[in-house]
Design a protein around this nucleic acid. Sequence first.
DNA 1: CGGTATCCCCTAGGATACTG
DNA 2: CAGTATCCTAGGGGATACCG
Lengths: 151, 151
Amino acid sequence: MGDGTISRLSSPEGTDRAWPDDYLDGIYRGEYDPEICPVRHVLKGIADKWTILILAGLKADRQRFSQIKRLVPDVSQRMLTQTLRKLERDGYVTREVTPSIPPRVDYELTDLGRSLVAQLAPLARWADEHRDMVGHARTRYDQANGHSDFG
Amino acid sequence: MGDGTISRLSSPEGTDRAWPDDYLDGIYRGEYDPEICPVRHVLKGIADKWTILILAGLKADRQRFSQIKRLVPDVSQRMLTQTLRKLERDGYVTREVTPSIPPRVDYELTDLGRSLVAQLAPLARWADEHRDMVGHARTRYDQANGHSDFG
DNA sequence: CGGTATCCCCTAGGATACTG
DNA sequence: CAGTATCCTAGGGGATACCG
């Protein structure tokens, strides 16, 4: 670990940044501690089955619980609640309860949440534009090797 | 499903794009089928514990198996192999075997892989810059509510 | 060196039922 | 309507041992 050689992978000579000015900065900053790495943490926070889709549903407007459910029809009530709570905890959304009967709960992106969503945009666009290439690559791979052990 | 109302969440009037020109396009394109959605698929492909870190290790240079292992010290041999295979299958990396003794295997990003890595950059930068805000939000949330049931 | 194979645990997440 | 609570399972992922 801390012997300093990790950052020597391909660092530009004569700079005091060990890595090029890109996202690796975040991953390898300082001691390489996987438990601390901020990129890992944020990624872990959004790298589940529903988070991105729910953030997507909230991008345009504040939404009620049931409206989000309608936008992401295949999420279970349990997971929707759980995911929204996590997003609230991380400061990405606010939760506002109106104690009427029946009750009403509105969710809305915070500035932090909107900021995150903005970062996700290019990735999603890329995903849409390159789905065919990935699909073809998979087909090729699976034909070259006989198995489909991946899912 | 396909009653067309899903895309009416907040679409601008008089356009034939149901959604603003951002990443939601990808998620909600056409029939909203979670099994097909390209964004979901790509996300799912990189949303595990190791993929991003391994892609990061490959960004600068072609690497041998053992070198990647050294860059990401806490990945198990099993998961490293498995993740690299998945990346190869999706067309993000190439795998080149040199049948020497001991054997040598080199991994390298494809153009597609480099393209993906480029999309990840702003997200990782964002993660690094906003880690404190997320951390504080969590602390606040956990103090307001007594529990730390999240991990 | 770069892998497989095996075992085993843990958590994400679905289904269902109940509640204020 | 917007949740809890409970039960249950698929599979992600670690540890270890073996192999060409």
